[in-house]
Simulated scan of single mutants.
Amino acid sequence: MNKQHIKLVVFGAAILALTTLYMVPMAFSQEDMTHIPVDAFGKLERPQAAFQHDLHNEKAELDDCVVCHHSMTDDGKRDMEMSSEGESCESCHAVEPTDGKTPLMRAYHRQCIDCHKQSLKGPVACGECHKK
C-alpha cells in the first residue's frame, strides 16, 4: 500500500468514527428521559411532568416517531409525514411566540392530552402528569 492509499483509509476511518460518535447520543438521547424538558420555561408553576419515553411508547404501542415528533409544512401546517425527532420542541414552539404560532406549553399539552383523550388512555388532568 502506498502512503496516499493509507492516508485515504485513515481519513475515511476518522470520518466514520466521528459520524458514529455524533449519531450515537442522538439515538439514545431519549432512552434515559424521565421528565418532559422544561429549561425554556424558567421558573415552573407546577412540578415537571413525569415522562418515561421508551416505557410510554411501549405501553402506547407507538413505533412511528412522527406520531409525536411532527414537523411543519412550508405553509405552517402540521406535517405528519416528516419527523422532527432529534429536535427540541422549543426549536419550533417559542414560550411566548410573536408570530402567531402555537406556544410551547400549549404544544406540549395539546400533543399529550389530545392523544390521551382520543385513545381514551393516559392522564388528562394536571396533577396526573405534574405530580408533587
Score class of each variant (00 low, 15 high):
Pro47His: 13
Leu18Gln: 12
Ala50Leu: 08
Pro25Ile: 08
Leu55Cys: 02
Tyr22Pro: 00
Leu21Met: 13
His69Ile: 02
Ala49Trp: 07
Phe51Ala: 04
Ala60Met: 07
Asn57Ala: 01
Asp64Arg: 02
Asp75Phe: 06
Leu18Arg: 07
His35Lys: 10
Ala49Cys: 12
Leu55Gln: 06
Tyr22Phe: 14
Arg78Cys: 09
Glu45Lys: 15
Met23Asn: 09
Asp79Val: 09
Met26Gly: 10
Ala50His: 06
Gly76Leu: 09
Gly76Lys: 07
Pro25Phe: 07
Met72Phe: 15
Ala50Val: 09
Asn57Thr: 01
Leu55Lys: 07
Ala40Glu: 14
Ala27Lys: 09
Arg78Asp: 11
Val38Gly: 09
Lys43Ile: 06
Ala49Asn: 08
Asp74Leu: 09
Ala60Gln: 03
His35Ile: 04
Met26Tyr: 15
Leu18Trp: 12
Pro37Val: 10
Ser29Asn: 09
Asp39Glu: 14
Asp64Lys: 12
Cys65Phe: 02
Ala40Asn: 13
His69Asp: 07
Ala40His: 13
Asp79His: 12
Leu44Ile: 13
Leu55Ser: 07
Phe41Asn: 05
Ser29Met: 08
Met23Cys: 11
Val67Ala: 01
Val24Trp: 12
Ser71Leu: 00
Asn57Lys: 00
Glu31Asn: 10
Ala17Met: 14
Cys65Tyr: 00
Pro47Gly: 15
Gly76His: 08
